[in-house]
């Protein structure tokens, strides 16, 4: 019985360390301003090679056709955008 409890406490302690390491990381994130300017962070995945607003993945050999199709389907959103046809 004694050993049983010992292990149970060990597991509970591990769970707490797990939990508090997450709390620690959260604290670090808050201190480092990770929760400010969220919109800017969300754009970090784009770069000059694959910029925002450009679809970057197509079935092989269908890129040109699909790009034109996508551009046509998006046209109503962009009022004043030059026509492509």
């Amino acid at each position: 019985m004694g050993q049983w409890n010992g292990y149970l406490i060990f597991i509970a302690a591990l769970g707490c360390v797990f939990f508090f390491s997450a709390i620690g990381a959260l604290y670090w994130a808050v201190r480092h301003g990770e929760f400010k300017k969220l919109e800017k962070t969300s754009r970090q995945i784009f770069d000059e090679e694959e910029p925002e607003g450009v679809h970057t993945d197509f079935f092989p050999g269908e890129a040109d056709k699909m790009r034109r199709k996508l551009a046509r389907s998006r046209k109503p959103e962009k009022a004043g955008h030059h026509t492509q046809d």
């Binding site: 959260l26 969300s42 925002e52 607003g53």
Partner: peptide, 20 residues
């Protein structure tokens, strides 16, 4: 998902909330 679509994730706030 946002990378291929070329538009950022709908709410970055929610994605962070999801992680934590």
């Amino acid at each position: 998902l946002p990378k291929v679509l070329g538009r950022p994730i709908h709410s970055y706030y929610l994605s962070v909330l999801g992680f934590w």
